[in-house]
Design a protein around this nucleic acid. Sequence first.
DNA 1: TGTTAGCACTCATATTCGTGGAGTGCTAAC
DNA 2: GTTAGCACTCCACGAATATGAGTGCTAACA
Lengths: 354, 354
Amino acid sequence: MSANRKETNMDLNERKLQILQAIIADFISTGEPVGSRSLSKSHDMGISPATIRNEMSDLEEMGYLTHPHTSAGRVPSDKAYRLYVDELMDTSDLPGERKEEIKVKLSETRTELDSTIEHAAELLSEMTNLTSFAITPRVDENKLKYIQFLPVDERTVVLMLVSEKGKVLNKAIRLSDSYTEENLELMSKVMTHNYKGKTISAIMAANIIEDFQNDMGSLAGLAKDVVPSFMKTLEKMLDVDLYMNGYSNIFELPEYSDDMEKSKNFLQLLENKDHLKDLIINRDNGLVITIGDENSEDMQDIALITADYKVNGKLVGKLGVIGPKRMKYGEISSVLKYISDNISETFEIKEPEE
Amino acid sequence: MSANRKETNMDLNERKLQILQAIIADFISTGEPVGSRSLSKSHDMGISPATIRNEMSDLEEMGYLTHPHTSAGRVPSDKAYRLYVDELMDTSDLPGERKEEIKVKLSETRTELDSTIEHAAELLSEMTNLTSFAITPRVDENKLKYIQFLPVDERTVVLMLVSEKGKVLNKAIRLSDSYTEENLELMSKVMTHNYKGKTISAIMAANIIEDFQNDMGSLAGLAKDVVPSFMKTLEKMLDVDLYMNGYSNIFELPEYSDDMEKSKNFLQLLENKDHLKDLIINRDNGLVITIGDENSEDMQDIALITADYKVNGKLVGKLGVIGPKRMKYGEISSVLKYISDNISETFEIKEPEE
DNA sequence: TGTTAGCACTCATATTCGTGGAGTGCTAAC
DNA sequence: GTTAGCACTCCACGAATATGAGTGCTAACA
């Protein structure tokens, strides 16, 4: 791990890096501020606590460490975590049995994207003991392919929309009037004629209601009943599903189980699904780690790791974990990367085989 | 409220009931054990603390009150809560503005069942400051109406199932081989022929795979790819959706925000969605309140209030709240009842109007 | 005979105080 | 440059103590 360390840190010599790494490692695993004495015991690096203290003092001045109070040990700063994930952490490969476990679990639902994503999130929280999440791919330039109304009962019909990318949505609609199957079919045809092949955003931008009601002639009343739901369903077409698992895992961490306020904030953050969705959607692709002050105001003491997966090499979904800044970045990154790659692989375009 | 009190409590005279009611009311609003002194201050009932103490002592002996410890005030027992919800609590009507608020909020999505239920759950947690949940109706004797496969890309198709009750489900399926649109149509037809009009449970019970593969002849391979997802989708047809809101509301309650273990247990309970679904589905219809020891082992210090709503007078869904035993039973019951009635009304069968 | 004042007693909670220990920073010697 | 030594800091913890809300009992009262 230290072998391939980049030489970009002119301000930190080898020993400082070594000490910093040791401090971060200890803090990640215990959550307690680490002092010079205990550090020299846990990591034998051939120097005395006094020397470590001197180095620590330097590191603090440089902004890598902080003091909760005068006579406490050191705690890594956000800057230190950044350095750690960029250059110090162990990113070695996952052990074989874990890989196997992931493979097996995900292959159970190999044929269905949504279930696979759901399982991936479950797996992720189990393996990391953190809160995991996953979103289904967002489809921006999606075109409508099928539009159909199905009769259910006297006053209820189901609107069904299918996009070219294979997303199917449906919505039961209550009508204010009764209808005939012929009317329904007619409406399906008019809609199909009007909107098939158009992108969803284009349809949403247009002034649907008037045009459509005109086209429907005597059935304008029916059309009026149906348009709001149509619009809402289109909107949902552009939306993504969010899966989340293991939100009660934080109670296993002492810094949360001893601090009610912290737990409360964390869970309130998670309960705001729309906010979370937005956040995840808008992350860059690839394995992305953001720590503390790199996040928004409400997540200053939280770290977020996300990765993307691809479907057919194009559609991009995301998954990841959220937790305290002292997380096992290396290990988690490996798990996350392996899972997301596995999904991408499962859903890549395969050459016809014969 | 005390006017229409039933005369079924031969063991409790009027004054004891009055005191018990006062204790429960105080405890519900403060969460602190209530003593004779403070009770005589908050409720002027023309008797001294000493007399109240005597009555309290009797009530304790009868099992309506308990002592956390010798020198603490009294806390209502589960038996007391039962008496309270059965006979003592104020079940007066909701104030007009609250009714209006509910009506307005729910009518926004009047035309769509699922959205309405989702909103109802949101509303419920907002109005009660508790955790709310709602499940969509369960449809037991549901028959298949449409079965169709739609092409998406080279290796992906979407299976779409529609039931007579208007439930639509779809699943993207990855095939191991390529297919032609003709094959897909053929498969849709065979399936429709075989299963349309059959109840879902009947189809699930039958030995699908062999029959279907035989019927498909040369396309047996395609059939094999598709059957597992078909089965899974059928299963989902019988399942219900669960919405939940406000799980972080418990942190506002002192007995939770001071007791980490309690909060943890509560949230872990909520995270077990399947368990919760089961629990809710299997509740009796009508307004049902279960308190403490009336619940299962893992919910001894929790109260649950549920109500049902009907769709077309038949399908039954449920919604309710979960929280500490000291909840405002009267008020919450009224809100819950008003919301569930409102939903039922919205989705009842309407006589054609002209 | 039911009600109430008075009082001794209990016990959780809050507060204070002292101690221990982990940790720091500085200095001086190696 | 490194390290041992040492004075100092300050949190964490436990014991001791005070507080006060509450009870149960008894005896007096209406």
